[in-house]
Amino acid sequence: MAESRPAARPLSPHLQIYRWSWTMAMSIAHRVTGTALYGGTLLIALWLIAAASGPAAYGTAQWIAGSILGKLVLFGYTFVLLHHMVGGLRHFVWDLGHGYEPQTRMNLAKYSVVVSGGLTLLVWLIALTR
């Protein structure tokens, strides 16, 4: 629309050109987990509809959730949700104007895996032992 010259601005991490780094991997992970959660919301809707429909439908939903495949999906969903949440906290740090130094960026990226992984294990420890 507007007559424009291409601006010399930084490009997004390009999968085939850049050497992989923690920050790049976590940037992509935030987008991938956001997309996975998008689909996951459908599962929440189905679960709630089953609960609203009555004992038979809820029993089926519980059976699916309790199966091996169901548990694997739920474990994956938990990690994806918590990883995206911790990644979001990282975005808040940046939005407030902090954490742009190379070492800080690297640490934030690494710790977001450790923290979200730890939180996921904690949630499942609580879930499986009650």
């Binding site: 609960a51 009555g54 949700l81 979001g88 879930a127 009650r130």
Partner: peptide, 23 residues
């Protein structure tokens, strides 16, 4: 996103509290 942080933690607590409960 800010709202989701608190609401996600609440959601996880609610789901955990429902594990194994009949309809």
């Amino acid at each position: 996103a800010v709202a989701n942080v608190a609401l996600t933690l609440a959601f996880l607590c609610i789901v955990i509290s429902l594990i194994g409960k009949p309809h």
